[in-house]
Design a protein around this nucleic acid. Structure first.
Length: 132
RNA sequence: ACGGUUGCCUUCAUCGCCUCACGCAAGUGGGGAGGAAAGUCCGGACAGCUCAGAGUGCCGUACUCCUCGAAAGGGAGAACCAUCAAACGUGAUGGGAUAGAAAGUGCUAUAGAAAUUUAAACCGCCGAUGGCUCGUAAGAGCACAGGUAAGGCUGAAAAGGUGGAGUAAGAGCCCACCAGUGGUGGAGUGAUCCACCAGCUUAGGUAAACCUUGCGGGCUGCAAGACCAUGUAAACUAGUGCUUGAGAGCUGCUCGCUCGAUGCUAGAGGGUAGGUCGCAUUAGAUCAAUGAUGAAGCUCGGUGUUGUUUAUUCAACAACGGGAACAGAAUCCGGCUUACACCGUAAAU
RNA sequence: GGCCUUGUAGCUCAACUGGAUAGAGCAUCGCAUUACGGAUGCGAAGGUUUGGGGUUCGAAUCCCUACAGGGUCA
């Protein structure tokens, strides 16, 4: 079912302030070009392995239009690529919180975002969620 | 400069986001950013603070009239300033937070004799009157007493201006006109303007310096505020107080009012920080929604080919590239300011 | 979202109550010294006082406005 329907609904997004703080404080770092990723173990009531948030610094992009644009591109790229992480995962297995931080200086193209997200997902597949 | 218009260029397809309705569910259907949503410069609604009370402070504001729910918004007007045209009437355009400097205080550098109140020390002018010297005398000289404020090249500003009369020299001392002040009358809703009369020339500038006067404002702002949930330490130390009263009620202070004893203040610590409402007339959340890809059409750009033209002109076709500016709602509304693509009008180049 | 606050040489700061040509240290450049460099000495350059407008005789300073930073709140 996941292959044909690449949804990205509300309960698939990382919203908890507590978990966000923990991800920034103790999360593992992962870098792909102009995207910085921080992730940590988490637990939530939804049938997905990951909860995801995107963020862009107000310092680097002053205009809200640019920040919205980048976050939309990142979300779209994640939506189209994340199905590979569903392989071999079933409800009840451990889950993770994931934060995308854009650290580039210019607005990226969609292709660049897609390539970088692919690389990140490759790494995440190689580093399966530890049982704890 | 003014006015206007559209707003990922449009349509379709696939995948997807927020929200509402229906449905057990799968899903189906409806709605989904702006003129500035921005800046937060004004104002209002709304909410809480005890009634939103009094005094004082503080803040804001400042020509007049009208208008708007209100405002520093809009309209019309008055005086002033600048520029241009003028030529002795004034007119046009533009500008600004435009009350009071005759209640008081402060500041006014440099320059200048002197910079703000008994102006007169200095350079000057005079020396009529008194004094001294010379001379028979008329008179001459001295510059001692004294008179005077016209002149002293500065300065943003020099204590009314110009002209006359007057004098030893001079002075609003006197006169005419002008300016200023006060009063009366008239015109206008009013700011203000016009005329006449009076006596006085006393009074530089600065209030976006303090200040005075008039008017306005209680304070804080949706992180206001209400509720639910979760969690801890009603513990420790020091001080203070217990109805004859410490303190609290977020207001600058005082009064008044209300509350007030397992209290209050300080120190060092412990713990929670999640959600609902507030919150939207059909956008609407609470890490925060409008996107991605493809195709076709339209349009713009330069390039190439062909035809055409006086022409670097016009047209057709082809592949390529682009779809633009400013910019993203978070309680709502009105105004202002700033940013900006295109079209129209006017002016200039 | 609301409310405060600050902008001066490349950097860190001065400039009294509005007064003259906006100063100082570090950094930069030149010269001297040295075989060369450093250090030292002498000298120079560097400013639309964030932009625009206003008040005033006079503005870094006062007022308005725009822009760019910084802080704070339950």
């Amino acid at each position: 079912m996941g292959q044909s329907r690449n949804t990205f609904g509300k309960n698939e997004r990382l919203k908890s302030v507590i978990v966000l703080d923990r991800a920034f404080a103790e999360g593992e770092k992962l870098k792909a070009a102009s995207i910085l990723v921080r992730y940590t173990h988490s637990s939530f009531d939804a049938p997905f392995p990951y909860q995801v948030a995107t963020t862009v610094s107000k310092r680097r992009f002053k205009r809200a239009v640019d920040r919205n644009r980048i976050k939309r591109l990142l979300r779209e790229a994640w939506r189209l690529e994340k199905h590979r992480l569903l392989v071999g995962w079933s409800a009840g297995d451990p889950q993770r919180a994931l934060v995308f931080i854009y650290i580039g200086r210019e607005i990226p193209t969609f292709e660049a975002c897609q390539n970088n997200i692919r690389k990140i997902i490759d790494v995440l597949i190689d580093d399966p969620i530890e049982k704890s």
